[in-house]
């Protein structure tokens, strides 16, 4: 247990040490590249802003991710169960996913003028539902027919088969996708916060750091974002342990 925590902590410390040395060895000023030792003062100076903005970013990301889970799972079910839907929807989904989301920021800002919370959540959702939809779809469409037949031969309904077999069997794929989506959702939130600033979220704090030439603040925001990403990632890991722990064969 101790080793499980110590190993990543040590890795982070080594990373910070190398970063500090890199800046020191090159003699870079902090407007070129801030060093880790610049960060604690920056955090301290704006500690209240970090808490407020960090919370803004976090809750909007989590709501967007939650929507992505609901909608992504629904789309996954549709393309997983129906070949027709799969053929029809895949090009649309792939095409939509291929659009750089930064280009959509002005579009949705115009459609929903002033709805900053909504716009941010929408972007977090749009950027993160795709992996979930695809993996749930693949999980369902590759279910071996025997799994269905053991219940189908007893006259079980499609819904019963889905609930007792298809859904739990797809959970490992689902959580694999959710880990990707959780980090993607942060990118969506920050895209809107940075490109279309409205004074809220870590993205806005980053933008104000840029405007004011406060480079340590900009780096501190990046580190705060990384930290939130890690927190959300481990929250997903926790849920995975609870709901799909059976798929983990570690130590067997």
């Amino acid at each position: 247990m101790l080793r499980k925590i110590a190993t990543p902590v040590l890795a982070v410390l080594i990373f910070l040490g190398l970063w500090e040395m890199l800046v020191w060895a090159n003699g870079w000023p902090n407007y070129k590249m801030a060093s880790p030792s610049d960060l604690p003062p920056a955090f301290w100076k704006y500690k209240e802003l970090f808490l407020v903005m960090g919370w803004q970013t976090l809750w909007r990301t989590v709501v967007g991710l939650f929507l992505a889970v609901v909608v992504g799972t629904l789309i996954g079910m549709i393309i997983g169960f129906s070949k027709l839907a799969r053929d029809a929807l895949y090009p649309l989904l792939v095409g939509f996913n291929a659009i750089p989301k930064a280009t959509l920021v002005p579009v949705i800002s115009l459609i929903f003028i002033g709805q900053h919370d909504f716009n941010t959540i929408l972007m977090a959702f749009m950027i993160s539902f795709f992996p979930i939809a695809v993996s749930v779809g693949i999980g369902l469409s590759t279910l071996e027919p025997e799994y269905r037949d053991i219940l189908r031969a007893l006259g079980a309904s499609r819904f019963t088969i889905f609930r007792k077999i298809a859904l739990p069997k797809t959970l490992p794929e689902f959580f694999g996708a959710l880990k990707v989506s959780a980090t993607l959702a942060f990118i969506g939130t920050n895209l809107v916060e940075i490109v279309s600033p409205h004074g809220r979220g870590l993205g806005a704090l980053f933008k104000s750091g840029e405007t004011n030439g406060d480079y340590p603040l900009m780096f501190a925001v990046l580190i705060a974002l990384a930290f939130l990403g890690i927190v959300l990632y481990y929250a997903v890991i926790f849920l995975e342990r609870v709901f799909a722990g059976w798929a983990d064969r570690e130590g067997r």
């Binding site: 071996e144 025997e146 799994y147 037949d149 077999i165 739990p168 069997k169 059976w246 798929a247």
Partner: peptide
């Protein structure tokens, strides 16, 4: 069946 198709969970 030949494949025992037991539910892993």
């Amino acid at each position: 069946f030949q494949n025992p198709v037991l539910l892993e969970w």
